[in-house]
Each structure stands twice: as C-alpha cells, then as structure tokens.
C-alpha cells in the first residue's frame, strides 16, 4: 500500500521543501553570530570589539594642558567651535609621548579649502571663497590669516 495513496508524490515534494527549510535553519544557526540582535540590528559582541580598539584621538581637553595659549587664541575667534584634532588629526600618540611623537603641521593649501571652497550646498552666511579669485597668486592661507583666529587683523570679530 502506498503511503498517502495517490497523493504520495505531493508528500515527497512537501518533504523536499521541508528539507530545504531545515537546511536553511541549520545554515542560519551556523552563520548568524550568537550575539546578533542582543542590543539591536547588529552583532552585540561588536561593541566590546570596537571598545577594545586602540584610541587615536586624545580629545581637546588634552591639548589645553600644554598649549593653553593657542587654545585661548582659538577660543577668541570664529574657529572656537572647532576641536584641535579636526585640523591637526588624531593626537593620542603625541599626548602619550609628547617628546617622541611630534605632530606634523597640516598643509594649509589643502586643509582650509576643505571647508571654505565655494560649494552651493553650504549656507550663504558661511565664509566661502572661489580659490582662483581669492588667491590668484597661490599664497598659503596662513600668509594672511592666523589659522587659530582667522579674522584677526581684518577689523572684524576674530
């Protein structure tokens, strides 16, 4: 006697599909990390792994302990809201060992225009220049502007 009589082939196809689903569930159990979804739509253990990575940024508080004069000058000008490492790059290694690790000075020719080259998407109130018009001679920005207080000497709020 055939199991399920004349509908036995339907049982076979149902079994194939059930095997497919079971295989999928096994593969899923193997491939999906156990901590996935622990806190949200990501691998929970990723937080501990990222936290264990070495720190590269020291934070602007660290700069003040040695460079209080520069920090004070910056605070008086329009760049007050910028943190030191935004332009000077991550300096955790320098803070840890100031004598051995000397920060490289930023290249002003490329650094300043990252924010101040004209871009129609920026607000009109934001200071922007068309580089070729503003500086046809190719002078470095800090020839005229003090980077830590860019409008110093221009008769405006520094």
């Amino acid at each position: 006697m055939k199991p399920f009589g004349e509908a036995g082939h339907l049982l076979r196809v149902a079994l194939v599909y059930a095997l497919g689903v079971a295989l999928f569930l096994i593969v899923r159990a193997i491939l999906v990390p156990h901590s996935f979804g622990e806190f949200g739509y990501y691998r929970g253990r990723a937080i501990a792994q990222v936290a264990a990575l070495p720190m590269h940024f020291a934070g602007h508080q660290a700069c003040r302990s040695c460079h209080a004069d520069v920090v004070a000058l910056k605070r008086s000008g329009v760049h007050a809201g910028l943190h030191c490492e935004a332009c000077h790059g991550p300096q955790a290694a320098h803070v840890a060992n100031p004598a051995a690790v000397r920060p490289v000075l930023p290249r002003v020719a490329t650094l300043c225009i990252r924010c101040h080259a004209y871009n129609p998407a920026r607000p009109h109130s934001f200071p922007q220049i068309v580089v070729k018009q503003h500086d046809p001679g190719g002078l470095a920005c800090n020839t005229c502007h003090q980077p830590h207080s860019p409008l110093q000497g221009f008769g405006k709020k520094t």
């Binding site: 004349e6 509908a7 082939h9 339907l10 076979r12 196809v13 194939v16």
Partner: peptide, 19 residues
Amino acid sequence: LTLGSYNISPRALAIDERA
C-alpha cells in the same frame, strides 16, 4: 525531477490538477 514517484494514474493527475 520525479522525486521518485512515477504515479501518473488518472486519479494522481486529478490530484495534481487540483493542487
């Protein structure tokens, strides 16, 4: 592709038609 079932009796085919 037959999945091991060679039953193509009129009754089996009628079940296929219904399914």
